[in-house]
Amino acid sequence: MEPRISDDLVLKAIAQRMDETPAHVALAWAVQRGTAFLTTSTNPDHIRENFEISPLPAEALQEIRNGMPGFIPQVPPPPR
């Protein structure tokens, strides 16, 4: 599927600074936003690694928001 999330320049730059993979940065981003992120790995080691994500600093979250206009913005939860 194109474009590949692992090829995104913003995610690559953040991943390099954090010593992570772009996929882990994207996964952390999704988790911190409270959104779903589907993974397709069937490799037990990769599945285990997906649970070992590190939180992104606020600057990285802002960088992703500013640099990835194709992503869906987070929608606030409905009022209770």
Rank of each mutant, 00 (worst) to 15 (best):
N43W: 03
A15Y: 08
V25K: 04
D8I: 04
I53Y: 12
R65I: 10
S6K: 07
I72P: 01
T40V: 08
A13C: 01
T40M: 04
V31S: 03
L61T: 08
D19N: 14
G67I: 06
L11M: 09
L27W: 12
P76N: 10
R17D: 13
L61Q: 12
H46C: 02
M68G: 00
H24V: 01
G34H: 08
R33A: 08
P22Y: 08
S6R: 09
A26D: 05
S6L: 01
I14Q: 03
P3T: 09
D7P: 01
I64D: 05
G70D: 12
N50T: 08
M68Q: 03
T42H: 12
G67C: 07
P69Y: 10
F37R: 07
P73L: 06
V31C: 04
I47W: 11
V75G: 00
I72D: 04
E59G: 00
E49C: 04
R65P: 00
I72W: 06
L38E: 01
D7W: 11
M68P: 00
L38H: 05
A23F: 02
D7N: 14
V10K: 03
L11D: 02
L38R: 12
E59W: 10
T35N: 13
P69T: 10
P3E: 13
N50E: 07
D8F: 02
L9S: 11
P69D: 06
K12D: 01
S54L: 13
M68R: 12
G67D: 05
G67V: 06
A58Y: 05
E59M: 04
P78V: 07
A60Q: 02
V31L: 15
A58Q: 14
L27P: 02
P3W: 09
M18S: 03
I72F: 02
N50D: 15
F51C: 10
A36I: 15
A60I: 01
K12L: 14
A36F: 14
P3M: 11
P78A: 13
S6W: 07
R4V: 02
A13T: 09
S54V: 12
L56I: 01
A28L: 08
P77N: 06
A15E: 07
P69V: 12
F71Q: 05
I53P: 02
L27R: 14
V75Y: 02
P78Q: 09
D45M: 07
D19L: 06
D8W: 02
R48F: 11
W29P: 07
T39G: 14
E20R: 15
A36Y: 11
Q32K: 04
R80N: 09
Q16G: 00
A30M: 10
I72Q: 14
E63Y: 06
P78R: 07
E63T: 06
K12C: 14
R17K: 14
E2Q: 13
P77I: 03
M1I: 12
Q74C: 00
A26R: 10
T42F: 10
P73V: 05
I14C: 06
D45G: 02
A60F: 00
H24Y: 03
A58L: 13
D8L: 04
